[in-house]
Simulated assay, not measured.
Amino acid sequence: MKMVSVEIKVKKEKKTKVFAGSKVVKHKKNKPKKSVAEKALKPKNYVQNPTPAPIIKKKKKYIMPTKSVTNDVVNSCLTAILQLSILHKKKNTILDDESPIFCEISCIKIQSVQTNIKFVLPNSTAASTGEICLIVPDMKKGRRFDHEPTIDHWEELLRKSGVTQVKTILPLRQVKVEYDQFELKRKLLTQHDFIMVDTRILSHASHLLGKMFFKKHNMLIPVRLHGQRDLKKAIEVGLRTVVLRLNIGITSTILLGHTGMPLDTLQENVISFVDQLRTRYPGGEANIRSLALCIPMSIAVPLYLTLRSSNTVNAPKIKKNKPKTFNTIEDELSTIPGSKVTVAPDGTVHVIKPNTQKRKINTVIKEDEEIESENEYSEDKDAAEDDQSE
């Protein structure tokens, strides 16, 4: 075999000499030119795979009502309300009475239980032309005894202490005898603008008068008269107390004054009420969505508003203070064997049924159904045999 020699030529790269002060020029490869649309879509500083920046959540700080409700804000709101009351009086010239000023409170989360909260304001909310009633306990209990000696006794005590605001005194016996019908109770409600009750007979009076006395503001306000040396101070505190009735809904209203009061006294009442909301309102001031001032049949003037999320607020739970004699009674129920019944002092009844009883009832029902199905099957079988014999 002959060997064949093949010459392979290899192109050598030319080495360029670089001299001092000279520039090296690199040859660019021929790349396809971009269209005008691609240039318009991609900006100059475009990066193909940009690294995402870390997301930092800033904590939002919401201002509480005690800090946002200042003297200037309250003054501006009250001046607007007074102007609204003047316009309302011009439209209704027959009614020249002092119109009450309310505060509307809307919460973020509703409380678990319906309760009443007392607030003591620096100034009285009773109108100058309004009549004030005081319900007092009887000196001698029973319907046979006359109630006039108790009225004379309390009138002397109030006269000695220098109390002039109370116009009428009602013993508990008079409430039982004379205000036993619905129309008479409503008449008592309309005649008086402010009703105070001694703490010793508050539960009895509220049971006799009914629910409609709780719907109106400043009705059945408790006053501690037992063991008080200074009756004037106790009644003045009662006239300065207001009750906030928390309902099932979000909003609730409370009376803070009337249009006949000067602007300074109204301002003091509003600011003291907002300060007390921090400790007395269920859930604290963080649970308050908005505050507004208004008069009857008018637009509410906003005093405070927040956009706080409901997730940041816990649902308020209120525990009622039970008296010492509040004991539930538990016993067996004779009508349902094996079950128990519990009766509370307020009249609520709960029946506790055992789970075993439910199982027994279910088994009895199933056995009855099986017996009925067997009887039906036997009847069908007998009918079929009779047909065949015929």
Rank of each mutant, 00 (worst) to 15 (best):
K2C: 13
M3A: 09
K11Y: 09
K12S: 13
A20R: 15
G21S: 06
G21K: 11
K23F: 11
K28N: 12
K29N: 06
P32C: 00
S35R: 00
S35D: 01
K39E: 02
P43T: 03
P43A: 00
K44Y: 04
Y46W: 10
P52V: 09
I55T: 12
I56A: 08
K59W: 08
Y62V: 00
M64V: 01
L78H: 03
A80D: 05
I81D: 05
L82P: 02
D96K: 14
I110T: 09
V113L: 02
K118Y: 11
S124E: 13
C133A: 15
I135D: 05
K140E: 08
D146Y: 05
E148V: 04
I169N: 09
L172W: 05
R173H: 10
E178C: 07
D193N: 12
R200S: 15
S203A: 07
K211D: 15
I221C: 10
V223G: 14
V223R: 10
L225P: 10
K232L: 15
R245C: 12
I254F: 02
L256W: 09
G257A: 10
H258S: 13
T259D: 08
S272R: 03
V274G: 00
E285L: 00
I288N: 05
M297H: 10
P302W: 02
L307S: 03
I318A: 06
N321A: 13
F326R: 07
T328A: 14
I329H: 14
D331E: 13
T335M: 05
P337C: 09
S339C: 11
T342S: 13
Q357A: 12
T363L: 13
E370F: 03
E372H: 04
D387M: 08
